[in-house]
Design a protein around this nucleic acid. Structure first.
Lengths: 116, 116
DNA sequence: TATATATTCAACTTGAAAGTTGAATATTGG
DNA sequence: CCAATATTCAACTTTCAAGTTGAATATATA
């Protein structure tokens, strides 16, 4: 089974060539050679980048004879999105707790001045 | 000025140690030494990771004498979020266009059989 | 002032990733 | 079958980031 992980996803996305490949595929599926064409590197190098993206679940491959068609698989972005959203959410929660504490403090100062 | 970029952001997030540091800081600001403590590597190595996160705008630093307090800056995630969302959006747009084309085809078949 | 503490700087080593080149595999067309 | 096309595999080189160690800087404290 294809093992999706935030590690593989973010690692795949961290390379500018690989992000460019994903952007190229927004126009629809392309052959390996077509993907490679605009890049200043060998076909082999691009083929390797494609493999990294595929292993991360960001691309899927359809074979038609000797030709391989690659297309972007947006679901592959999910691990990255989830990590980022969870991180933001935890932060907000922390911030909310702080705000609550401040409000509680306020209440103490206004409503219980007769204390001690 | 601190130059935020998707490249720096995703590169910073691609390392598991650095993601762990961000997660540690969800509990609030910590000293460099405290951040380093749970990691199986030298203080220096962690200090470098902190610098990478800081350069990417993901952490901010407050100095109090010889002690440096680091805290998570959620705004630093924005370039990553924006790239991902834009990529998803372009994909959806493409998909919508395809759907529209299919519907238009349908309309042709049902409503204009007297054509040609 | 001397010493301990907190952190960074600088130089170095190392391992992995990115790139290259040439051969291998598979498929299509003459 | 033979040649051309599309892609990957394998071996190699090179670049670069991650890690180490030891020294430097800055601040606190006895």
């Amino acid at each position: 089974m294809l093992q999706l992980s935030v590690d593989k996803t973010l690692n795949a996305l961290a390379d500018p060539t690989r992000r460019a490949i994903i952007e190229q595929l927004n126009g629809g599926e392309q052959r390996v050679s077509d993907i490679a064409e605009p890049h200043q590197m060998s076909l082999n190098a691009v083929s390797k980048h494609i493999k990294v993206l595929e292993d991360a679940g960001l691309l899927s491959r359809r074979r038609e004879g000797r030709t391989h068609y690659l297309s972007f698989d947006p679901g592959g972005l999910d691990p990255a999105t989830e990590w980022i959203e969870r991180t933001k959410a935890l932060w907000s929660k922390r911030f909310d707790a702080l705000e609550e504490a401040l409000l509680a403090d306020d209440a103490n100062q206004n409503g219980r001045e007769d204390d001690d």
